[in-house]
Simulated assay, not measured.
Amino acid sequence: MKFVLLGSDPHTDSFVRAAQDASHEMIAFMADDGETPEVPSSARRLDGLADVVRLTDVGYAVLAGDFDYRAEQALALVRLEPMPLVLSVPLAEKPDVYYELGLYRVESKLPMLTLLPEAAHPGLAKLREWTGETSPQWMEWTLPFDPEQKGSLRFHEGWSWIRSLGGEIEEISATGGDESGGGSQLLVSARHQSGILTTIRWRALPSEGYGFRLETTAGTIEGTFERGCQGPVTLIDRRGGQLRTETHEPFDVGPTWVAEWEALREKRDDEAWHRGLRQIELASATNESLERHRAVSLEYSDVSEQQSFRSIMTLTGCGMLMGLVLVVIVAAIMTSMGVFGNWQPPIFLGILGVLALFCSLQLLGLLFRPAKPPKPSPRDEDSLSHPD
């Protein structure tokens, strides 16, 4: 399987090394200014995205690079030549880019994989094993954020753990900090669709005491992070009057990602895309709640061309009806002023013509097949875990 590398960062470097170990061949690469990615001598250096389109034997593209241009590159690439993508996240500060990429993903049926290391942490896999099929009754988290980061990027960490254990979140309310949403500590309340309540305290770097506490029907499970959700984690199980402690180090997630990518090309898995999308949706909702000083509700749905077509037709139909009413009113006024004579027949025929044209446009909807809605599950057995 041949691929091109567009940019470089630690996440994609791990994937690329594992891909080459699995006999995937890098045939070309494009590096940002100052980047020196490790590439084979046979790989051709590209000057721009247009060069990618000219390649005829590309199986997929791995996209990382400078964050300020990452979203533009991803959108430009799918517009020029839609192809399977492996994406380093976050792509952008807001989820709009993900929605447009998701449209290409759903309609083209091309696989897209988001590289999110915390979702593959072995500590998360063990924690899910401990909690079993029963979700926690409530959760309390203390997580780090960098006040120097802009907007929602400050709150990008931890959501994979929280979603995996509590399920999808339907409402977020954030308080604390100054008027710009800054400050050394922020408090977030999240309500899950399952009814679980989660409290998150974000502490500005540098700080200590990152971790979590889960209250289950059988007792309490606690955990402490050394360097946030991607670093070592110590799990403490206090359920049943016993004390069990385990420490889990992060591992090279590259081989796990490559195995998931190869499986994804054979069978569609929405979670491989949704984990990156949900991460930025929740971070963006947190930032919006801080700025607007109110709770933010979240609704989840895949964007498709069929849904876009229906929205456009609805807006067009409403605008057309209002326009026809306005035309009739203006014609009646002009007739009363003696400007028009017998205006009813031509106006009536014109209205019928416009309605016939609008109805014929509805046939274009047959060109779009309905997309299967996503069914994200917090306990999907296909979620990433530590390889045996």
Rank of each mutant, 00 (worst) to 15 (best):
D252E: 12
E260P: 02
M320T: 03
L326I: 00
A283T: 10
Q306I: 05
E305Q: 02
E249G: 00
N287F: 15
L277G: 01
L326A: 02
I280V: 12
L282I: 13
N287V: 11
I280Q: 12
E271T: 09
A272M: 07
T286W: 15
R294Q: 15
L290F: 13
W257M: 04
L277F: 14
M313Q: 09
W257G: 03
T256I: 11
A272D: 06
T286Y: 14
W257N: 05
N287T: 11
W273G: 01
V303L: 12
V303W: 10
R278I: 07
L282C: 13
R265A: 03
R310Y: 14
V325L: 01
E260S: 09
P255N: 08
T316S: 03
Q306N: 05
Q307P: 01
D269I: 02
A283M: 12
A285V: 10
E262H: 09
G317K: 03
A272S: 08
E260I: 04
D270I: 05
I280A: 05
R268F: 05
P255G: 04
E291T: 15
G276H: 08
D252W: 11
D302A: 06
G319Q: 00
M320D: 00
V296K: 06
E260V: 06
E281M: 15
S284D: 15
A283S: 15
W273D: 01
D302T: 05
T256M: 11
A285F: 11
S301Q: 14
M320K: 02
Q279R: 14
A295D: 06
G254L: 05
E288G: 06
A295R: 11
N287S: 14
D269H: 07
D270N: 07
S308H: 10
I312P: 02
W273R: 03
